[in-house]
Design a protein around this nucleic acid. Sequence first.
RNA 1: GGGCAAUUAGCGCAGCUGGUUCAGAGCAUCUCCCUUACAAGGAGAGGGUCGGGGGUUCGAAUCCCUCAUUGCCCACCA
Length: 920
Amino acid sequence: MELATKYNPSEVEGKWYQYWLDNKFFASKPDGREPYTIVIPPPNVTGVLHMGHMLNNTIQDILIRKARLDGKNACWVPGTDHASIATEAKVVNRLAEQGIKKLDLTREEFLKHAWDWTHEHGGIILKQLRRLGASCDWDRTSFTMDQVRSESVLRVFCDLYDKGLIYRGLRMVNWDPKAQTALSNIEVIYREEKSKLYHLKYYVADPENLEIPENTDNIIHKDERGYYAVVATTRPETIMGDTAMCINPKDPKNQWLKGHKVIVPLVGRVIPVIEDRYVDIEFGTGCLKVTPAHDVNDYNLGKTHNLETIDIFNPDGTISQAAGMYVGMDRTDVRRQIAVDLQEAGLMDHIEDYENKVGYSERNPDVAVEPRLCMQWYLSMKHFAEIALPPVLEGKIKFHPQKYVTTYRNWLENIDDWCISRQLWWGHRIPAYYIETKPLSDSPEGEEERFVVALTEEEAYKKALEKYPDLKALPSGSGEGGWTLRHDEDALDTWFSSWLWPISLFDGINNPGNEEIKYYYPTADLVTGPDIIFFWVARMIMAGEEYLGDVPFRNVYFTGIVRDSLGRKMSKQLGNSPDPIGLIDKYGADGVRMGMLLAAPAGNDILFDEALCEQGRNFCNKMWNAFRLIKGWESADIQQPSLNSHAIAWMQARIRTDVAEINDLYGKYRLNEALMAVFKLFTDEFSGWYLEMIKPEYDRDRNCPKPLDKATLDATLDIFGQLMQVIHPFMPFITEELYQHITERKEGESIMISTLKLDAPSELDAKLIAIYEEGKQVISGVRAVRQQKNISPREPLVLEAPQIADGVAVLLSDTVIKMAGLSEIKLVDRKSEGTQSFLVGTDEYAVPLGSLIDTDAEIRKAEAEIQRLQGFKTGIEKKLGNERFVQNAPAQVVELERKKLSDAESKIAALQETIKSLKG
RNA sequence: GGGCAAUUAGCGCAGCUGGUUCAGAGCAUCUCCCUUACAAGGAGAGGGUCGGGGGUUCGAAUCCCUCAUUGCCCACCA
């Protein structure tokens, strides 16, 4: 069969992936082997693959495949995340396109739409991962909202509630007015923004009592309408909610305002001037307007000073009835309008440009978050911080790179309670049931709520009766005087299910101590981005410690962000995000995998460039052609030349040595370096040197290569197979293809499940490698001479080598002759005249060139080299002349310097000799 | 405002606890070669005062101080 000169991935990849699936090579069951588990960071169920996923999952696949080759029971569990806010937003948008409003639907109707959407788009991303070669155990595919995972979430909620760690609280939360839900603190992203600082006039309401101090530091504003204070604010639209003005009691500028009242501009409300040290004297005028309903700090001031709270916003960010003005307008429009109105009313002192930070919703990045006071569910974090800190600080979990340990610690040491309720329908419904004996007030400050937390409604009834014995006297049901349960409308934060992922995937919550959780937990490695260290990584550690008393993983490998070659983040707007599947079509999955990884040192951002995929594709081609070469050789029952047996020994030594290093790099998660080492081993050592060494001559009579001795061919096939195994984790498809060719596969075999057992490199290996390295230098030396003199590689040359019994010219003479295209190697005491020479170490080699030699140029070259060496020499002499160096430096180092000196001297001597002979 | 990291060849990076793996590979660049596996290839070559300045030391890319630049994270200054 004729093989194409280029590797064609598209012919190969689909075939092998199916073969792997058919043979269930990805499947894992608990057995006696050592487990190696990875749980996938679940992508959004309706998401599509982007470059970040490509990187992340390539790394996971490499680790999993490596573990499999090492004989471990590798289990990579895939799945998707319901991503409540993101998905619900998408569903709402789609409904809107159809003219349907969410609020017009019942919860059940909405959820039906959401599930339809999920089934329609769900799992596309997992299909895409197959193209990449991801060797997930697909039978285990899970979803954060499937039955097992959902039950786990509810059980955990009930359990934590029973433990007193979950509570309901009226707090200032971050409110997303578009999604109309609360967010946790870490879901808010602060962005620096150009805005305005509005300086508003708050006239003193009781000027008759004002005592104007003289000759003081007070700064007093007055115009024809009277005395006023200037308040600087970025949010003039909140003045309807002002219930006080606050100054710092020590502020010399504003002493005159103490104890007075001021009038809120436009609104006309008279509010007190309160004093609190919270106020920064330096900022603005030192006067702060206090809006307890719409700012966390103001809320706190309101609490300490017993201020009234006026909530001027509706949940969707429009102005509420309570504001009394601008009712129904959107907050952003009001800001514009009120600025105009204030100007016109003469209540605006001035406006200046200002930069401040505005919080945006992580999932709705164009929506500014509104602080809002409402009742939410919280998970108390003190306990979790305490259990999650030690495993990381003590190194039971290792972070790669390590610098994230500090980040992790800082966060846990300053952690806020976790707001876990979301006013969404798509998600796990909070298993709380309110007892309704009469219509409940909607007001958050309504009377004390009565509720129970239970896994099912049935259980909730029982619990209700236990908790509130008075209910026993009442008839159950919605009838006259009866009582019913109202299921909490809210859903849980998505991360409240994700944090259980390494446990819930093995059903360790519902079914504690089951065989799978015992076997697979803790998992080995987690591969994820540093952006979710708090959202996910930290919380998994909390859940793991809480529910299994053990860490969820041993290592966390933080990948960088994939950027374009200019260092910009990939984004749809910029259009700089390549389509991963398109890339795979173009370069093959193996090529793309290599391209991704080459640019990806652990923890650094990766600057992705398609050219890197080209390099990956080229490497595939290199392997393919090396295989074609070997495949074309016939074997014959002839004596094995010593050149070949030596080359085999050397190549094997090389493999042992390099694989040891590669394994070490794996251990340090320096996968890009491991890949580089793999690449060089194959391209340089194997293809560039080894294959060329043993390559049989061409038989012109038969028009094909001469046969190769069987022993060498067999050994070469073995070596090739080993190399495929070493490369396989990085490039699974082509290595499988070539491995199968090499081994004449039988059905059911695969490189995936093969094992590679190599001895540790020995001292002998090191020696062998050193000899060959020197031999390579001699060969390169001759090639360089050819290059300089423009001599064809096919023209045989003679090499004069120094008389050294164990020198490479003797030990590797056959190899050097073949590789350098020599007719012979002459061992000489003195090189002859008319040669071009080069040094390898301190040994001088010479190629006689007769008339080709340019004597003058050679002399100039030698003189330049002598000069360089002289400089080198004087440097060392100076060092050795320094008594303190000789006294203080270790003997070894001093000895080395001496050797350098003598080497330099002998090199200089040799060069002078050369010049002499050239001058003849 | 606090913290962390980075700064080494045109580019993206490696250089572990100070001394032969010390100034490195890869890509890119340049030169030559369509040699019977591979031009998606081969052979060869050039290229860096290790961000600036100071210090410690016999000796610093490596340790310390300082400045500069960049990036990231955290934080309620309106």
